[in-house]
Design a protein around this nucleic acid. Structure first.
Ligand SMILES: Cc1cc2nc3c(=O)[nH]c(=O)nc-3n(C[C@H](O)[C@H](O)[C@H](O)COP(=O)(O)OP(=O)(O)OC[C@H]3O[C@@H](n4cnc5c(N)ncnc54)[C@H](O)[C@@H]3O)c2cc1C
Length: 467
DNA sequence: AATAGGTTAAT
DNA sequence: TTAACCTAT
């Protein structure tokens, strides 16, 4: 008789989950999620993400219940909890979906070792990414550093068909009753309330509904609308993909790539896989610049500038709109993420790692791989070699991607009455116009904290000095 | 078969 | 600037 343990982490689903399908073949199966107090109190886990997690755990327990199983939620450090639990329940093997951040890899290696001391195994299954990290390789057998050729190879791959959930789960081993569990709804750190409409509900149920809605029409316009800041033209599935309430492979399989909107959407899913590949291959990039020579750049330790940025008080409407969207929604449009990241790193010369940490502390979809990849791309410290340093002009970006000002007016209401031709550069309003509109720059809305033209020159000089 | 050097493109 | 691929040797 085999007794096994399914240890859930960021794969809180029943559909297309190879680890669960394998575990379901055991004679006895226990399912567990370990709430690590260290992570619960960590500032890199945002309030919106805690709320999402709580709801996702409740949802998963219900789903496993429907299959004849149940989810035990145990409080503690998984390095101790999992081996102890395995011993207590006399488990032969522990199944997990492999995760690829340095933290997760170290944790799993430690658990694997502890299990091995008692003759048990940790079995890692594929399931976070679409293609297993490390599997998409160049002609010379290295991992890609540039997205476009990665994407070419990735697209030609057969990623396999998604798996259906097990029809039923084996009964739990004797002894589960002894295990000290908690109800996720009773964990104070997870009892987070937010602006309910703005934060997505967590769990496979809500996630699958969102996926169905997205694929039923809106995705067809993705290529046209994904860069328009003022409309909800993107899928908003990032937290679902991050927590694994949705299988990225299932989302990908359900696309019809002959449709341009759906094909463009497939490319974005490939970006997620790309950054997973990069992190799995070069884990040090989680902490610092990919390239050695960019590890010790003389970033400016400018707390005032950082605060103004974080609070959406820079005086650049598009930047401020985006940062306020982040604070309220725990989510920010991808275009806006690039704009604010460029602004922090180039206009303010603040270390990208401060921005990266602020994103993790606020995003509902905070993801070490994608977030780090996005920040290093914007900072110019990442894997891709560049010909020119990338400096976004916030005014140009605003007029191009929020031409009618819907986004800025929504998030920076004090500018709502400005005419379109001044909305993205309110500092150019004459004093008379400011009086007439009732918006005094420097009083009702901040004066720009830098002159972009000067900041741009400063960044270019700084970069050539530093490198 | 392995490598050097040219070409193309970088969301 | 340089990654990745292609071609020639
Ligand atoms: C500075 C910066 C930080 C970022 N931080 C994160 C993060 O912490 N977590 C996160 O999931 N994404 C991050 N991204 C990527 C991207 O902005 C978000 O995935 C996207 O905005 C989420 O919204 P959506 O689900 O509506 O995206 P859609 O446009 O609908 O895209 C679909 C899915 O594709 C994936 N995806 C799309 N764009 C990217 C990308 N550039 N890189 C990797 N995956 C992508 C996401 O899983 C996303 O849910 C970051 C980008 C930048 C520039």
């Amino acid at each position: 008789m085999t007794t096994e343990l399914m240890w859930f982490r960021r794969d809180l689903r029943t559909h297309d989950l190879p680890a669960l399908v394998t575990a379901a073949d055991a004679d006895r199966l226990a399912c567990v999620f370990v709430l690590d107090p260290h992570l619960l109190d960590h500032e890199r886990v945002s309030p919106a993400r805690k709320r999402y997690l709580r709801q996702a755990l409740v949802d998963l327990d219900n789903r496993l219940g429907d299959l004849g199983g149940q989810l035990m939620v145990v409080l503690g450090d998984p390095r101790h909890v999992v081996p102890a639990l395995a011993k207590d329940l006399e488990v032969d093997a522990v199944h997990v979906t492999a995760d690829h951040t340095p933290f997760a890899v170290a944790r799993d290696d430690a658990v694997e070792k502890a299990l091995a001391d008692d003759g048990r195994t940790l079995e890692r299954h594929q399931g976070v990414s679409i293609a297993p990290p490390g599997s998409v390789r160049t002609g010379s057998d290295s991992v890609y550093k540039v997205f476009t050729p990665f994407h070419r190879t990735w697209t030609q791959r057969d990623h396999g068909e998604p798996l259906t959930p097990p029809a039923a789960l084996p009964r739990a081993p004797d002894g589960v009753g002894r295990i000290d569990t908690v109800a996720p709804t009773e964990v104070p750190q997870l009892d987070v309330r937010g602006p309910d409409e703005a934060w997505p509900d967590g769990g496979e149920g809500p996630a699958r509904e969102r996926l169905d809605d997205w694929l039923d029409g809106p995705v067809d316009d993705y290529d046209d609308r994904r860069d328009v800041l003022g409309v909800p033209g993107t899928s908003r599935l990032s937290p679902d993909l991050h927590m694994g309430c949705l299988s990225a492979r299932e989302a990908w399989t359900r696309l019809d790539r002959r449709n341009p909107g759906q094909d463009t959407y497939a490319t974005e899913l490939a970006w997620r896989d790309f950054y997973l590949h990069v992190m799995a291959e070069w884990p040090d990039t989680a902490r610092g610049a990919f390239r050695e020579e960019y590890r010790d750049l003389p970033w400016h330790d400018d707390d005032d500038a950082f605060e103004a940025w974080a609070e959406g008080q820079t005086g650049f409407p598009i930047v401020d709109a985006a940062m306020r969207q982040l604070s309220t929604m725990g989510w920010m449009h991808n275009r806006a993420r690039m704009i604010v990241a460029s602004f922090l790193c180039k206009d303010l010369l603040v270390d990208w790692r401060r921005g990266e940490a602020h994103f993790m502390a606020n995003l509902v979809d905070g993801d070490t791989c994608s977030n780090n990849g996005g920040w290093q791309w914007a900072a110019g410290t990442g894997t891709d070699a560049q010909q020119f340093i990338r400096i976004f002009n916030p005014t140009t970006q605003g007029t191009r991607f929020d031409p009618d000002g819907v986004y800025v007016r929504r998030w920076v209401p004090e500018l709502a009455d400005l005419p379109n031709n001044r909305l993205h550069e309110p500092w150019r309003l004459s004093e008379e116009d400011q009086e007439a509109l009732g918006v005094i720059i420097g009083e009702d809305y901040p004066a720009p904290i830098v002159d972009h033209a000067e900041a741009r020159q400063r960044a270019m000089d700084w970069w050539s000095q530093a490198t």
